[in-house]
Amino acid sequence: MCLKIGIITYHFTINYGATLQAYALSRFLENNGYDVEIIDYRSKSIRLEQRKYLYPKRSWFNPNLLLKSRKKVVNMNNFLDKNLKISPKKFYEKNTLNEYKHLYDVVICGSDEIWNVNSPRGLDTPYFLDFLNGKDTRKVSYAPSFGSTTNLGLNKEKIHNLLKDFYSVSVRDNNSLSLINQGGFDFHIKKVVDPTFLIDYEDIIKVSDVESKYILVYGLLDQKEAEYVKALAEKEGLDIIAIGAPQIHLKPFLKLDLFDIAPDDWLGYFYNASFVVTNFFHGLVFAIIFNKPFIIFSHPQKTVKVRDILTPLGLESRLLNLNEINNKKTFLTDDDLLSPLLTEQQRNDLNQQIQISKDYLLREALK
């Protein structure tokens, strides 16, 4: 009998990484013979984020940006409708989730920062599966993250009690692992890779038709970072293409500014890039997946989780902070930064991490 699995995560979003991690986890499980469905939970905080995105302050000063923002939302939603099996019912309040508590054999929460109690979303307990009874439905986490949270504070005991009802717990990063361990939990917690590493994207990727070689930028850059990328592009004879984030300082230097593209097109621009510049976690992930040389600009709230990926692979030098002395001089004279990224040993190390994560999910959490 085929197990029916429900997944609760951030899927209703304009974030490419969040969308693709939901797709990847669902597709990986389907490829391994499970009946999988995304539980369409859209909390008030998530809906508010989307509303702010659709109607940004002072949007009347830039109607073109407003139109692009709406087009991006349509593209993201169309991708979800086409590629994910989503529950027939939408849930806007957490107490209504009780209606689905007997529909699944297993429910998985994760991935992404669904446990980030330090975010404006706070502690949203459905992402800890509080609408289920662990005796009736197996509760599993796959690669959730506490994000920028460094202390559980008053939520510590409540989170501890919620996790005690889980069959199996895994997280995405060392910070999340440490926070749970500090709670005095008496069961084993696994660290696993982000679900986007679990599959390939041959079935959905739309390869760009850009013929010139280019630096791909994913992330909103400040003035110093934009000037840095411009200097690199001129030095190496590369065009600059930006995707998925509105550009201000970089805009005058762009060949293409693709703020509103669909996730399958987004993947295609990563696939064809000669070099990737990002300050987003999933920008780093997909640069590695497609084996592209990259730099990731340091961001205070993201440094910890990106180091979780960079350090085991020996890629710490790819994390740059332009406020540090001599970074620019070092970068522009270092031709190795445009060389192929992963050595055979690094690729083997990454594949080992991926296999451990697959084994956890299939042989431990779902056995």
Results as ranks from 00 to 15, higher is better:
L179N: 11
G147F: 08
R42S: 05
Y100S: 13
N15K: 08
S317H: 00
E93H: 04
F290K: 04
I180F: 08
L162Q: 10
D112H: 06
D173R: 02
F290T: 04
A22G: 15
Q345P: 07
L25F: 10
F270L: 13
I199W: 02
N323C: 02
L103P: 05
E157H: 09
E93D: 11
K213S: 12
L25E: 15
K213D: 12
N133F: 00
L341S: 11
I159W: 03
F286L: 11
Q50L: 13
D112K: 04
D173T: 05
N291I: 04
T9N: 03
L154W: 05
H188R: 15
N32V: 07
K4C: 13
C2K: 10
D265K: 14
I189D: 05
D81I: 10
E234T: 06
N64R: 07
D349F: 00
T149M: 07
I248N: 12
I204C: 03
L80E: 11
Q353R: 11
N351P: 03
E316R: 00
Y16Q: 11
L48I: 06
F253L: 13
E93P: 01
I108W: 02
L220F: 02
N155F: 09
K158M: 12
S212H: 03
Q21W: 08
F12Q: 14
I248W: 04
H11Q: 12
I295L: 12
H249Q: 12
K101S: 13
S208Q: 03
V36Y: 01
Y41N: 04
I241W: 01
F61P: 06
T125V: 14
K44Y: 09
K90F: 07
Q223K: 06
E49W: 04
V207K: 06
L337I: 15
Q247S: 09
V306W: 00
N175Y: 05
N327S: 12
G314K: 00
T343Y: 02
Y34C: 14
P252E: 12
I215L: 01
L338Q: 10
S87V: 10
K72E: 06
K305Q: 02
L341A: 12
V276Q: 07
P120R: 13
L29E: 15
I180G: 05
A365P: 09
F79T: 08
L366N: 09
I309E: 01
A245V: 15
S69Y: 00
